[in-house]
Structures are given as C-alpha cells and as structure tokens.
C-alpha cells in the first residue's frame, strides 16, 4: 500500500492534468468568444503586414477587444524581437 502511495503522491493524477488543460483552453476561448468574427482574420493580416518589415514570431501580435463603459477599445500589442532585422 505504502509503495503505491509513493507513486500516487509523486505523480499528477490525470484528473488534475485534465482540469489544468481545461482551465487554460476555456479561458482562451472565452476571450475570443464575445469578440466579432473578424478578429482572428484581422490578426492574421496584421501579422503579415508587420512581417513585411520585421521578422516576428507567430504569437507576436496580440489583439484584444475590451469594453470600458460605452467605449470599445481595440488593443494591439506587437512584440518586437530583441534585434530587429529588416527584410527587403
């Protein structure tokens, strides 16, 4: 019994793994849920435009739509690489 407990305490149970995975994916899907349908496409195009000038990674462009009172705020966040390399 003690032998089994040793393993049990050291390993994450699959239920714990499931819960953590769900919390992450559900949180991500909730942020895009209420946004307009064009957001993901706009993000893709913005990434292409940025890449015409600077080589950035796939996740470098973050688009977020927030509501502040009656005002809707579109927040655009582009992470530049440490040493920007201009491409022709």
């Amino acid at each position: 019994m003690r032998f089994l407990d040793f393993f049990r305490n050291n390993r994450k149970t699959t239920a714990t793994v499931a819960k953590e995975r769900l919390q992450i994916i559900v949180a991500r899907e909730r942020t895009t849920r209420n946004g307009p349908d064009y957001l993901p496409m706009m993000k893709e195009e913005l990434l292409l435009v940025v890449r015409k000038y600077i080589q950035v990674e796939d996740g470098a462009v973050k688009v977020q739509l927030d509501k502040e009172g009656d005002c809707e705020v579109l927040e655009l966040n582009i992470t530049l690489p440490d040493e920007p390399t201009a491409s022709s």
């Binding site: 049990r8 714990t16 499931a18 819960k19 919390q23």
Partner: peptide
C-alpha cells in the same frame, strides 16, 4: 474513479 484521480470531480467541473 474520482477518488483515484482518474476522473474530474464535481467541484472541478463546477469551478470551470
């Protein structure tokens, strides 16, 4: 199975 950690518990699902 929940007790063995093989299945999400009621509280897990409620929380999510």
């Amino acid at each position: 199975r929940v007790e063995k950690g093989e299945m999400l518990s009621v509280d897990d699902v409620k929380e999510i």
